[in-house]
């Protein structure tokens, strides 16, 4: 069940020039990484502060948190489903943690409560979408709205500011040499996820479900439980990200979800173009996140307004969707011969 494009020579037209792509399939596979490096180089030249140690560190921390939040989403989209509740679940975990800390419950207990909130919503989505096969989009819109609403209710509509950041803050502060520890941990987590996705049957099933769910069911794979597992995973990782954000922002923010929504989908779909030709995959997501975090940070340093970066993000998402459809179309044609 490995990637079709790996086994066969690439179809013409995927790369920019027709004559070279048969010999240089890596240009598409790794083109996105080159693009990211080029953009970063330009930003670093235009605004030298972009490449400051302090700035890079803070970018790594934000990228690590975002990467946690989008890990579950990557596989859900890869499996042909959708989750639009992840950012609200993160928000809820963030507010639950913050309010527990505010009420002197201590960070360990508060984090546990935040995790539980994420687990509950993950399990809720898993039950409705995975087990009962209800429409994923509407259910996750509704459960996301529910989570966001509860999050706002916890703080009565306003944010909760925290005096201490506890052991979560210590994790975020910890450095292994010059690199934030949390970034290394997330990279290790993604390496593990890459192994699961590429070497274990679970990963194979995820991509197979997207291509032909009926066939996977006929093959005897417990599809319902598999989809349920993905939603639970998404709830948990989103909750962890929300807890880290509580320490990172020293506060509980009831409306932080909005900006992560567009970023999450953009990172997953933009990253889907890298390495696997239009299939969302964990390394691609990681690259997409690094790109988005760097891009938003760099353009903010250049003095771009929010509206301009919002428009660029919308366009990037549109372009990546277009590229993915185009690439999958090509893949399918190659397969038919």
């Amino acid at each position: 069940m490995s990637d079709v494009a790996e086994a066969r020579p690439l179809p013409p037209g995927l790369a920019t020039t027709r004559s070279t792509d048969r010999r240089h399939p890596w240009a598409i596979r790794y083109g996105f990484f080159l693009f990211v490096m080029a953009v970063f180089a330009v930003l670093a030249v235009m605004r030298p502060t972009f490449a400051n140690a302090g700035n890079i560190e803070s970018m790594l921390v934000s990228a690590a948190i975002a990467a946690l939040m989008f890990l579950g989403l990557t596989w859900i989209v890869a499996a042909g489903e959708i989750d639009v509740s992840f950012m609200s679940v993160a928000t809820l975990a963030n507010m639950v943690t913050a309010s527990m800390v505010e009420h002197r419950a201590g960070w360990p207990a508060a984090s546990l409560a935040g995790m539980t909130a994420g687990l509950v919503f993950g399990a809720f989505n898993a039950l409705l979408v995975g087990i009962l096969r209800l429409p994923a989009l509407v259910i996750t819109i509704a459960s996301g709205a529910l989570a966001a609403s509860i999050a706002a209710a916890i703080g009565s509509g306003t944010s909760i500011s925290l005096g201490s950041t506890g052991f979560v803050g210590a994790i975020l502060e910890a450095r292994a040499g010059p690199v934030p520890l949390v970034a290394i941990l997330v990279v290790l987590l993604y390496a593990g996820a890459w192994f699961v996705q590429e070497k274990l049957t679970l990963g194979t099933y995820i991509y197979a479900m997207q291509q032909n769910r009926a066939a996977v069911i006929e093959a005897g794979v417990p599809v319902r439980r598999l989809v349920a597992l993905l939603y639970v995973l998404s709830g948990i990782v989103a909750a962890v990200a929300g807890i880290l954000l509580a320490a990172n922002l020293s506060s509980g923010q009831p409306y932080l979800g909005g900006s992560y929504f567009l970023n999450g989908l953009t990172a997953v779909l933009l990253g889907g173009m890298a390495l696997k030709m239009g299939k969302p995959n964990v390394l691609g997501t990681l690259a997409g996140i690094v790109f988005l975090v760097g891009f938003l940070n760099g353009t903010a340093l250049l003095g771009w307004t929010d509206s301009r970066s919002q428009i660029v993000r919308g366009l990037l998402l549109l372009i990546s969707v277009g590229l993915i459809v185009f690439a999958n179309d090509r893949n399918r044609r190659t397969r038919r011969g």
């Binding site: 567009l262 428009i311 998402l317």
Partner: peptide, 20 residues
């Protein structure tokens, strides 16, 4: 033939950006 969910999320984001 773009997927409707993600496409409309993107155009919605575009519209919000323009609204500013």
């Amino acid at each position: 033939k773009l997927p409707d969910i993600v496409t409309t999320i993107a155009t919605g984001g575009l519209a919000i950006g323009l609204a500013y």
